[in-house]
Amino acid sequence: MEIRDESIGGTSVVTAIGRLDGGASAAFAEKIGGLIANPNPNLLIDLTGVDFVTSAGLRAVLLLVKKVKAIGGSFALCGVQESVREVLDIAGFTAMLDIYPARAGAIAAMTG
């Protein structure tokens, strides 16, 4: 899995590309977790390039959510493909996470 990060208007935006499965989830959680350092962080993960998420990937996302929430930050996803959305729905993640169609709208909502 390819992971790129950038800061846009005070929000850490992570672009993930590839499969978020058992082979990639540990590195995904470790790399993105390393970006969560300051209090009240805004973390947005763009999943436009991710078409396969397993329970290992969901666990990684949940770990990041817990870490961000624990220090008063905001967490959101954007660009979720239909196949991934179905998995998030079943796991109850769509009810507990902020999910936006596209990056621009997500950043506006998180920083507005």
């Binding site: 329970s55 969901l58 666990r59 949940l62 929430k69 796991a91 507990m96 996470l97």
Partner: peptide
């Protein structure tokens, strides 16, 4: 809620 949610157990549920 995310803070109360246990890690794991989702695989066979899926």
């Amino acid at each position: 809620a995310p803070g109360d949610r246990p890690i794991g157990g989702l695989g066979l549920y899926l």
